Amino acid sequence: NRRVIAMPSVRKYAREKGVDIRLVQGTGKNGRVLKEDIDAWLAG
């Protein structure tokens, strides 16, 4: 149960899109989840 590193704005964006942020692979520094990662996850 790893802790997800993401800015609050990215967490909010994921919530609005209905994405469980824990399932998204972060590509930022130290595995940080970026807004682009959410978009990529939604695109498949």
Results as ranks from 00 to 15, higher is better:
1 N>E: 13
1 N>S: 09
1 N>R: 04
1 N>W: 03
2 R>F: 06
2 R>W: 04
2 R>V: 15
2 R>I: 15
2 R>Q: 14
3 R>F: 07
3 R>E: 15
3 R>H: 15
3 R>T: 14
4 V>W: 03
4 V>I: 08
4 V>D: 04
4 V>M: 03
4 V>Q: 05
4 V>H: 04
5 I>D: 07
5 I>Y: 06
5 I>L: 08
5 I>N: 11
5 I>C: 05
5 I>G: 03
6 A>W: 02
6 A>H: 03
7 M>F: 15
7 M>S: 15
7 M>R: 15
7 M>P: 09
8 P>R: 15
8 P>I: 06
8 P>M: 07
8 P>Q: 08
8 P>V: 06
8 P>D: 05
9 S>P: 08
10 V>T: 07
10 V>N: 02
10 V>W: 01
10 V>D: 04
11 R>E: 02
11 R>K: 08
11 R>W: 08
11 R>Q: 05
11 R>C: 03
12 K>D: 04
12 K>P: 01
12 K>T: 06
12 K>F: 07
12 K>A: 08
12 K>L: 10
13 Y>N: 01
13 Y>G: 01
13 Y>L: 05
13 Y>S: 02
13 Y>M: 04
13 Y>F: 07
13 Y>W: 06
13 Y>A: 03
13 Y>Q: 03
14 A>H: 00
14 A>Q: 00
14 A>D: 00
15 R>N: 09
15 R>S: 08
15 R>I: 11
15 R>V: 11
15 R>D: 05
15 R>T: 10
16 E>G: 10
16 E>K: 15
16 E>Y: 10
16 E>C: 06
17 K>T: 11
17 K>N: 14
18 G>P: 01
18 G>Y: 10
18 G>V: 06
19 V>P: 00
19 V>Y: 01
19 V>T: 04
19 V>L: 07
19 V>K: 00
19 V>D: 00
20 D>I: 07
20 D>K: 07
20 D>Y: 06
20 D>M: 07
20 D>W: 07
21 I>F: 04
21 I>L: 09
21 I>N: 00
21 I>E: 02
21 I>P: 04
22 R>P: 03
23 L>M: 12
23 L>E: 11
23 L>W: 10
23 L>Y: 13
23 L>F: 13
24 V>T: 05
25 Q>S: 13
25 Q>C: 06
25 Q>E: 14
25 Q>Y: 15
26 G>Q: 04
26 G>Y: 03
26 G>V: 03
26 G>F: 03
26 G>S: 07
26 G>H: 04
26 G>M: 03
26 G>E: 02
27 T>A: 05
27 T>M: 07
28 G>P: 01
28 G>K: 03
28 G>V: 03
28 G>N: 03
28 G>Y: 02
28 G>E: 03
29 K>H: 11
29 K>I: 09
29 K>R: 13
29 K>L: 10
30 N>H: 13
30 N>R: 14
30 N>D: 12
30 N>W: 11
30 N>I: 08
30 N>L: 14
31 G>P: 02
31 G>N: 10
31 G>F: 10
31 G>T: 05
31 G>K: 08
31 G>V: 02
31 G>L: 08
32 R>A: 09
32 R>P: 01
32 R>G: 06
32 R>E: 10
33 V>G: 00
33 V>A: 03
33 V>C: 04
33 V>R: 02
33 V>M: 04
33 V>Y: 01
33 V>H: 01
33 V>D: 00
34 L>R: 10
34 L>I: 09
34 L>Y: 12
35 K>L: 08
35 K>T: 08
35 K>I: 07
35 K>Y: 05
35 K>R: 12
35 K>Q: 11
36 E>V: 15
36 E>P: 14
36 E>G: 15
36 E>W: 13
37 D>V: 00
37 D>E: 01
37 D>N: 10
37 D>K: 00
37 D>H: 02
37 D>P: 00
38 I>L: 05
38 I>V: 12
38 I>Y: 00
38 I>T: 01
38 I>A: 01
38 I>C: 02
39 D>Y: 05
39 D>T: 10
39 D>G: 04
39 D>M: 09
39 D>Q: 09
40 A>G: 12
40 A>F: 13
40 A>M: 12
40 A>Q: 13
41 W>N: 05
41 W>T: 06
41 W>Y: 14
41 W>H: 11
41 W>I: 07
42 L>H: 08
42 L>G: 06
42 L>S: 08
42 L>V: 12
42 L>T: 08
42 L>F: 11
43 A>I: 12
43 A>S: 11
43 A>N: 12
43 A>M: 13
43 A>P: 08
44 G>Y: 13
44 G>Q: 13
44 G>P: 10
